[in-house]
């Protein structure tokens, strides 16, 4: 059995294209999910029961379904639910966004809640207003807590983008699967696919570890 690794080099531009799409997907979804996640978190505490319930249901539902299924559901259900016709990329982005926003809102909620109430009270007893105390005492600490978790979420998202390949979005995984079929150099292409992901994500995972060490909970 001979292996022909040159096939990987021959298709390097397609791989690079796939990498590019993967990165764009991950960056745009993460960028949107942070403010949306904060929004959902605030909705859960806003005081209007109906909105709180909707937000909670949102979070619980989209954290408790597999991402792949969500991708399929978005592909088939969204056009019928919204009447809009969406491209595959847009569908993929929405599915990822629903998933990551739900997780992020939980992350933010846990981060804020993990700051002991005494901290807020200490700020208030110094004479700060509630919003001053939140801004100067609670939120800075909460952000430190949340950064490592967000970083882990990013790595998850990066891997999760591979699932949009199932609806024919031309990310890295799709390119790999497609080339496997077209070149029949299965082992070489798939191994190269794994290696490329590894090269991209391994440093990110290490960065996440570093962030956990640097910003990990200190009490």
């Amino acid at each position: 059995m001979t292996y022909d690794w040159s096939v990987v080099w021959d298709h390097r531009f397609e791989f690079l294209n796939g990498v590019w799409v993967t990165i764009i997907l991950a960056v745009s979804v993460m960028a949107m999910s942070i403010p949306l996640g904060i929004g959902v978190m605030l909705l859960r505490q806003c005081g209007i029961k109906a909105l709180e319930v909707i937000a909670t249901v949102f979070v619980e539902v989209f954290r408790n379904v597999p991402l792949l299924l969500l991708v399929f559901w978005a592909y088939y259900a969204l056009p019928r639910l919204t009447g809009a016709s969406l491209s595959n990329v847009e569908t993929g982005v929405i599915a990822l966004l629903l998933n990551v926003t739900a997780y992020n809102s939980e992350n933010f909620r846990a981060g804020v809640n993990s700051i002991r109430k005494g901290q807020l009270e200490a700020g208030l007893s110094l004479g700060m207003s509630w919003s001053q105390a939140m801004r100067k005492v609670v939120l800075p600490q909460a952000i430190r807590r949340v950064v490592p978790v967000l970083a882990s979420q990013w790595v998850s998202l990066f891997k999760g983008t591979s699932l949009v390949s199932a609806i024919a979005v031309a990310d890295l995984a799709y390119v790999g699967l497609h080339l496997r079929g077209s070149t029949f150099r299965v082992l070489e292409i798939l191994t190269a696919l794994a290696v490329i992901y590894w090269v991209l994500a391994y440093p990110q995972a290490k960065l996440v570890d570093w962030l956990h060490r640097k910003y990990g909970a200190q009490e």
Partner: peptide
Amino acid sequence: IDTMRAIPELVVLIWIFFSIPIL
């Protein structure tokens, strides 16, 4: 352990499904 954090499950699955028979 760190490698498995970096590679998507889908890629691992596809690799095993197609490559093990070849290997």
